[in-house]
Write a protein that binds this DNA or RNA. Structure first.
Length: 798
DNA sequence: GCAAGCCCAGATAGT
DNA sequence: CTGGGCTTGC
């Protein structure tokens, strides 16, 4: 007996030593998080503390060794000899130790028992990639990794029947939501001044995030306004259902509902997802909290990672309490704090700490680093937004020259998308390749939305909102009166507009237009046939022909028309790439991708271009050199937040996120006057910048004395934009390696400078082969990023 | 039913 | 400054 006990003890000891060595690239806290597989676990991960590394290593460890580290089991064949073998293994390399451990592990977890919820699809993709690298191609087979929305949608698609929706249901984006809500408000005869669609949608969204049903909202309503909003909510929901559509929030809510009320499905999913990991937990809302706790109910193996200081999605319903009280709501939760920062210089870290310490109600933690002090933070005051943009562009040129930096080293992060314009202009003038993420997204352009609306109606003819968008686009002589009549009939008979239109001659109100309406439905049904047999890119091509859309845009004046043709070309390129990336991609999959995939998911950190994005988008990313323009009160913090201390704290967390993106250099700029939304105003330095101690700055902020001048002192000074001297010519990336193809069209490689008929000059950023064709991603000097097919692009080398 | 033109509100962040 | 909604005159 005694003997056995001591054997167990020696085995356990050496086993843990070996695991510590095998995962020696992690610090002890990180390892603790990695090896803690069972039970609830909260990992408080400060900025740059290796959170992603922990997540990936933890899943890799789970799949490979189960719970071996903390397990009290010992392998059956363990004996003196085996133990001395293990002792000798200590001197081996981590990789070799891992193989040795394979021989003594006492458990293993199957990938299909693991659910990993990440904040972006990109993070999920990278996680899978790294797991495949570590465990081989089928080592992660069956593991679910994705965003809350994509994972829930996957569940909803699988169990569509039990949700009350029907096959092919569609997702309404913010725009569609507004349209639908507007019609609800109008039909209710409510005062449109008092109830804007936006406010009603916000109300609905807030309810959904808290899992409040329309009826509950009505009961809770304390006064007239809330009662009204609740009734809009009810009607809105009803119409969504008729259109076989869900909004973004529904994706989560309907999943919670499904799991909550269907015992069989709940059992199945709880049994399946025995191990659940949630990244960016500080940005989950109540509905998401309920979802994960429900899924984890049976096994209790719920791991959440996050940083309360980086909670920046309050406006979307994120509830910081989820992370602040995880250890209280989950009994027996273990808490691991990661406080060593591996990303930034101590100057940058001190700067971030100086800002965030002004917030109250945080989890107590102190971030530290072994990285050197590095350079001081640069703070610069400029006259106006053009000077600011020129300053940033100039700095980038300078650092490229002096420090031999790559363009991908630089990021410009701002509070609001509206600030990107001036910056783009400055980069374009100097021929600096750049890419803008977010903002007016590609999929929000009119012609793109139109084509997608066709695809939606083809996929789901009940989709009334999309149907109304395209029914007379291009013009088919179907006017508002007819559309209204169809809509009314549909509501009256509880049918979709499409169904009414199919039988138009049976209704006197629309019988005069019956022929036109039926032409339309026939066209859609015809396209449905094509959709069932052909790929999406082919389908789009047919849509353009059959609908007359192509003819319509080709008839437009040249510049406008060509631009739209090009944009649609880009949509087709995206469809080609998408079909290629999936084995069996359906139209439904494509539409889902288009609505759920964020700009940031396509961000390639190695592409040779400066990147411009909002601070929100930059969450989780890091860059050697970061510029923070427009650090001014009213912009950052937003003027809309000043009246609420909670919102101010969120702004400050956002500032913290902004600063902690930087690894080596941080440039903060602000201006005296700024042209924004069509009017020029005077701005003062951001209060957050004032919170940075002078000794961290390369230039004293007191030196600027800006507050002492009356605003007018700088008035009326025009700052003409800098001469457009340096034009692209001097600028090139690497050597050009042109390849000729058999087809005769010259092929280009990344880095080549090219000329395009519509967009002018640009730089090829990436080349993705696609069958006999290829997709170019090109940064145009004056037209931004475009994707185009090599065989059709008509590019000239310059 | 349609196109042109006027008017006015709205412009934080994003799945 | 922009885009969408509305009016107006055909």
């Amino acid at each position: 007996m005694l003997d056995n006990d001591s054997l167990t003890k020696r085995y356990t000891e050496i086993k843990r030593k070996l695991f510590d060595k095998a995962y020696g690239h992690l610090n002890s806290k990180q390892r603790e998080a990695v090896f803690t597989v069972n039970g609830p676990l909260l990992v408080l991960a400060g900025a740059g503390s290796g959170k992603t590394t922990v997540l990936v290593n933890r899943i890799e460890y789970m799949l490979r060794y189960g719970n071996t580290y903390f397990s009290e089991k010992i392998p059956l064949d363990i004996d003196e000899e085996k133990i001395s073998e293990l002792e000798k293994a200590q001197s081996l390399s981590p990789q070799e130790i891992k193989s040795v451990l394979d021989g003594v592990k006492t458990s293993v977890i199957k990938p299909y028992n693991v659910l990993s919820l990440t904040f972006t699809n990109k993070a999920a993709g990278e996680m899978k990639e790294r797991l495949v690298k570590a465990l081989g191609s089928d080592g992660a087979e069956g593991l679910w990794a994705g965003t809350f929305h994509s994972v829930c949608l996957r569940i909803l698609r699988r169990f569509t029947e039990q949700t009350g929706y029907s096959e092919g249901f569609t997702i309404y984006d913010t725009d569609d939501q507004k349209k639908l809500m507007l019609s609800v408000i109008k039909d209710a005869g409510a005062d449109e001044k008092m109830f804007t669609p936006r406010a009603a949608i916000d109300f609905v969204s807030a309810c959904k995030n808290e899992l409040i049903s329309p009826d509950e909202a009505k009961q809770k309503a304390a006064e007239f306004r809330e009662e009204k909003l609740a009734s809009f909510y009810k009607e809105y929901q009803k119409r969504l259902k008729t259109a076989n559509a869900m909004d973004f929030d529904d994706i989560i809510v309907r999943t919670v509902e499904l799991i909550g009320k269907n015992e069989e499905i709940r059992d199945y999913l709880q049994g399946k997802f025995r191990y659940i990991c949630v990244d960016e937990y500080q940005d989950t809302n109540h509905a998401q909290f309920v979802l994960v706790t429900l899924l984890a109910e049976k096994y209790g193996n719920l791991m959440v990672v996050g940083d309360d200081d980086q909670s920046i999605y309050g406006f979307r319903g994120a509830d910081i309490k989820n992370i602040l009280s995880f250890d209280k709501s989950m009994e027996g939760a273990k808490v691991v704090k990661l406080e060593q920062n591996y990303r930034s210089t101590s100057s940058i870290l001190d700067c971030a700490n100086a800002i965030i310490k002004n917030n109250t109600g945080r989890h107590d933690k102190k971030l530290w680093t072994e990285n050197g002090e590095g350079e001081k933070i640069s703070l610069k005051l400029l006259g106006n937004q053009s000077e600011e943009a020129d300053y940033i562009a100039g700095k980038i040129m300078e650092l490229r020259e002096k420090e031999n930096r790559k363009l991908s080293d630089f990021a410009v992060l701002y509070r609001i998308n509206a600030l990107s314009n001036t910056l783009e202009g400055a980069f374009a003038r100097r021929g600096i390749p750049y890419r803008v993420l977010g903002g007016q997204r590609f999929y929000e352009r009119k012609e793109i939305k139109d084509i997608l609306a066709y695809l939606c109606v083809i996929n789901n003819p009940q989709d009334n909102i999309r149907l109304m968008r395209i029914i007379n686009e291009p013009k088919r002589k179907i006017g508002d009166a007819t559309v209204d009549a169809v809509k009314t009939l549909a509501e009256h008979y509880g049918k979709s507009m499409f169904e009414i239109m199919e039988n138009a001659e049976q209704y006197t109100a629309i019988s005069k237009s019956a022929a036109k309406l039926k032409d339309f439905t026939r066209m859609i049904l015809g396209l449905r046939e094509i959709a069932s047999g052909d790929t999406v890119d082919v389908l789009i091509d047919k849509v353009l022909d059959f609908s007359g859309y192509r003819a319509m845009i080709e008839a437009l004046d040249r510049e406008d028309g060509r631009n739209r043709v090009e944009n649609i070309g880009e949509l087709i390129s995206n469809a080609v790439l998408f079909m290629q990336s999936r084995e069996e991609a359906t139209l439904s999959d494509f539409l889902e991708e288009v609505t759920l995939v964020a700009d940031i998911d396509n961000y390639d950190p190695d592409a040779e271009a400066v990147v411009l994005m909002t601070v929100h988008s930059a969450k989780g990313l890091e860059f050697p050199v970061v510029f923070l323009p427009a650090m001014e009160d009213d912009i950052f913090p937003s003027g809309k937040s000043v009246y609420s201390s909670e919102e101010m704290e969120e702004e400050r967390r956002l500032a913290y996120v902004a600063v902690t993106r930087a690894k080596e250099k941080l440039f903060i700029t602000h201006v005296r006057e700024r042209l924004l939304y069509g009017k020029t105003s005077y701005y003062r330095m951001s209060q957050f910048v004032k919170e940075i101690p002078d000794e961290l700055l390369s230039e004293s902020k007191n030196g600027e004395q800006q507050r002492k001048f009356p605003a007018g002192a700088f008035g009326a000074v025009r700052h003409p934009s800098k001469p457009k001297a340096e034009i692209s010519g001097e600028f090139s990336i690497g050597a050009s390696l042109a390849q000729k193809t058999v087809s005769g069209a010259e092929r280009f490689s990344a880095g080549d400078r090219v000329q395009h008929g519509v967009f002018g000059s640009g730089t090829v950023l990436t080349v993705t082969p696609a069958g006999s064709d290829a997709v170019y991603e090109i940064a145009f000097d004056n037209a931004g990023m475009k994707k185009m097919m090599a065989n059709y692009a008509k590019l000239k080398r310059i």
